[in-house]
């Protein structure tokens, strides 16, 4: 009986989580415009989606920002992690608090504060400010995924490399980074995923002229939902699902 109840509970949770998404995906293949009636299978909305200039533009913004933010935050985060790891206990604890703080902060606070910063410094909001914002919220996640790898490392391996004739730079690239490669890749993918699905912070740090997918969907939704957005959301869901599965699998393997 208990067992049965447990299973029911799990099923309910999953249903409430995933039914809306399934409905969305099914609807994206609906031939008609109505959301209430199934008018047959069609790829119409997908075709329309890829013919819409604005959507394609937004897709480009989303992907290019995700890639750039991933690259920059991975480099910054990895170097920061190595620096933090080398610190003495007290400054290290301080730096870790500073690293964790943005992660616990609501997105809306981060978004508004970045917006205020850009207004205050008179930087015109647009592509660059959105990119900077994404780098900002991605970097702590990279630090947090690289740091455990550094902690697992035998700290004498760096000294061993110097001992064998390596310059500090050579040791960094041939001994330290290869040993935390797993953490760096996981961090990069996490950064990419986070950047891809961010709405709140993007919304506050860009101008109406530069839209990524999430801000575009938000602004179109107010005018009434174009069914091609169902297709777009379905695609984003699948892409993120694949990425998350890869990230999860990597972290599971690490353990």
């Amino acid at each position: 009986m208990m067992k049965w109840l447990k299973k029911c509970y799990l099923a309910l949770v999953l249903i409430f989580l995933y039914v809306p998404i399934i409905v969305l995906i099914v609807q994206s293949f609906n031939a008609g415009k109505s959301r209430a009636k199934w008018e047959g299978f069609s790829l119409r909305w997908y075709i329309e989606l890829f013919q819409d200039e604005r959507t394609l533009q937004a897709l480009f913004v989303t992907l290019s920002i995700a890639v750039l933010a991933m690259i920059v935050s991975t480099v910054l985060g990895t170097l920061a992690a190595i620096g933090i790891h080398a610190m003495k206990k007290r400054p290290q604890a301080l730096m870790m608090t500073l690293t964790n703080l943005p992660n616990t902060m609501p997105d809306i606070v981060t978004g508004i504060s970045l917006m205020l910063l850009f207004i205050f410094t008179k930087v015109e909001r647009g592509y660059v400010t959105m990119l900077l914002a994404h780098i900002t919220f991605d970097t702590p996640y990279v630090i947090l995924s690289v740091l455990p790898k550094l902690k697992q490392m035998n700290r004498h391996t760096y000294e061993a490399a110097l001992d064998l004739g390596a310059t500090p730079m050579y040791a960094l690239f041939h001994v330290i980074i290869p040993q935390c490669k797993q953490g760096i890749i996981t961090g990069a993918m996490l950064a990419f995923t986070l950047s891809l699905d961010d709405f709140t912070i993007s919304y506050f740090t860009t101008s109406p002229l530069v839209q990524n997918l999430s801000t575009l969907i938000y602004s179109s939704a107010r005018k009434g939902i174009d069914p091609s957005l169902n297709a777009l959301s379905a695609l984003m869901f699948v892409a993120l699902l694949v990425l998350l599965l890869i990230v999860n699998r990597r972290t599971a393997e690490d353990k």
């Binding site: 035998n154 004498h156 391996t157 000294e159 061993a160 490399a161 001994v175 290869p178 040993q179 490669k181």
Partner: peptide, 9 residues
Amino acid sequence: FQKYALFPH
């Protein structure tokens, strides 16, 4: 080194 410090990779 103590505990060898071999390069695990």
